[in-house]
């Protein structure tokens, strides 16, 4: 009986490897894009978080969105997943490149998400990203939601850029300081920051809509498959444990109870985690 249990465990391992191979490594090669990540929804969830903390809403700025799009396209072109490009371009270079003269600027990145809410939740769960989301220094925001191939797989990239523009009354005497951190402070501390004019909200950038499963959707599917497999194996082990106890079979084996506990711990961890990545 003990050997049959071990054989069953080996079968589970081979099944998981097979699912990994087919679902995660092979399926994305033949699929295209589709995502439910939308700029309007990202803006809504971001401002919703800010309102709950008593902060003012961020206004969608077309220039910042253009900068975000430029950054996203550069990431696909140079095939990197980082704030600084391999050629040394910082996020602030893209912001300045679109003519947005900022006092404060920041950037959050996300990849492989299929829902807008999951993106914002993932950012909010990370202290450094949450600092950007909830910073009182920013008053404007820009988004890019772009499909492309990054590091060998088709995916959806989300770039979120924050900013506070230098007002016309400001003296633009010193260049903006650059920093390794995402929140950049200006070197100009001489004049008080004027309250900027309220701008008209530019037309929202239309969401990118695809027609087939994306890498993000496949990743979500792999999460739920892992959860289902984990629960199935836990139930199998529980039945085995109860059967052995009831029938009084003497089985020289490990502690099935602790096997189940470890497995359920992993299942809980997978459930708790978002499948996409943030940076």
């Amino acid at each position: 009986m003990f050997h049959k249990t071990l054989v069953t465990y080996v079968f589970f391992i081979l099944s998981i490897i097979f699912i990994n191979f087919v679902l995660v490594l092979k399926v994305p090669d033949i699929l295209g894009y589709a995502t439910d990540v939308k700029v309007n929804d990202l803006l809504f969830y971001t401002n919703d978080l800010r309102e709950k903390k008593g902060l003012a809403d961020l206004t969608l700025n077309e220039t910042l969105s253009k900068a975000a799009n430029a950054k996203a396209n550069d990431m696909f072109k140079e095939d990197y997943w980082a704030h600084t490009s391999p050629s040394g371009k910082e996020p602030w270079d893209f912001i300045i490149g679109t003519g947005y003269d900022y006092i404060y600027a920041g950037e959050n990145l996300a990849v492989d998400f299929s829902k807008s809410k999951d993106v914002v939740v993932a950012w909010n769960n990370s202290p450094s990203h949450r600092d950007n989301l909830l910073s009182p220094k920013y008053n404007e925001i820009g988004f890019a939601v772009v499909n492309g191939e990054l590091q060998g797989r088709k995916t959806t990239l989300v770039v979120q850029m924050f900013g506070y523009q230098r007002g016309k009354a400001q003296l633009a005497t010193t260049p903006p300081a650059t920093s390794k951190t995402r929140d950049v402070k200006s070197a100009n501390t001489q004049a008080a920051v004027p309250i900027p004019e309220v701008k008209e909200v530019p037309e929202a950038i239309p969401a990118v809509i695809g027609s087939v499963l994306s890498s993000a959707t496949v990743m979500s599917a792999s999460k739920y498959i892992a959860l289902a497999l984990g629960l199935f194996i836990s139930i199998f082990m529980s039945i085995d444990w109860l059967y052995v106890k009831r029938t009084g079979i003497i089985k020289v084996s490990g502690h099935t109870f602790f096997h189940i506990l470890l497995l359920l711990f992993a299942v809980a961890g997978i459930w708790y985690t978002n499948i996409g990545l943030v940076l």
Binding site: I13, I16, L25
Partner: peptide, 20 residues
């Protein structure tokens, strides 16, 4: 114990999107 740990590691790799 090794097989159970292997199951947990593989499930984690699949569920957390690491395997890609």
């Amino acid at each position: 114990y090794s097989l159970v740990s292997a199951i947990v590691i593989l499930l984690s790799a699949l569920g957390l999107g690491i395997i890609r």
